[in-house]
Amino acid sequence: MSPNNMARIKRFTPLQRIFHVLLMAAFLAQGATGLARMYIETPWGKKLSWVFGGYESALTIHKYVGIFMVCGFLLHVLYLVAAIDWRRFPSSLFGPDSLLPHGRDIKHFFLHFGWFLGINKAPQFDRWGYWEKFDYWAVFWGMVIMGSTGLLLAYPLAASRLMPGWGLNVAFWIHRIEAILAMAHVFLIHFFIAHLRRHNFPMDRAMFEGSADLDDTRHERPSWIARLDKAGTLDSVLVPEAKVYRRVLFYLLGYTAVALGFFLLIGGLVNSPYITW
């Protein structure tokens, strides 16, 4: 890209990147094992479950990975408590570095739509766009819903001590619909935004590399750069580009996830009329 050594701006910490990669791997494993069981009536589902050692062991893997994700989520909540700027609390929660939804996100959403249709100029995004905040909170509440219903279904005897057994019927359907929603959202919308749109094509490496191209960021998130310029801290968050072998690794990781996601999405859609819902 640019010959400048410090051409990229730091966007994610190593811990955040590790959590994203773990979440990616666990999400795909849960998607694949869950769909393998849901589609066991179809040849596609049978092949998919074969990868995990069959119908029964697919569930065993699904449960262990699920517990792993719940633990990861709890650790993330602890991380949040540590990451909040308590000295400027609570105003820090509503600042531009916070992922909490804000009134200006709704404004940006409509302005962005206006820009799509050529009605107005593009909104001045800060560090986090409204779509990124939406993705974050979608995963956050998704984890709560999937984790709680999943634990109820994984331990039905214990669960039916806490609630009537017919609650498991309800938990099953909530788990299923939320899973379909989550997979469709990630495999269609998240992948499109991070890979296919022209600004990011072929891939936005920021979540793997931890940094984004400074010029591109200046272009897409002018408010953020202007804010850092004004505070005089821009130079302190500039980093060099990652080495070639690492970039290759990031592309491999990203495209493996995209390939698996599309495989699950297309297989799921094509075979959906042939299963007993």
Binding site: F113, F116, L117, F134, F192, I193, L196, H199
Partner: peptide, 14 residues
């Protein structure tokens, strides 16, 4: 909300 949003975004960036 997000399907038309993302499709329009993709087209606009072209």
């Amino acid at each position: 909300v997000f399907l038309p949003h993302t499709a329009l975004w993709g087209i606009r960036e072209l």
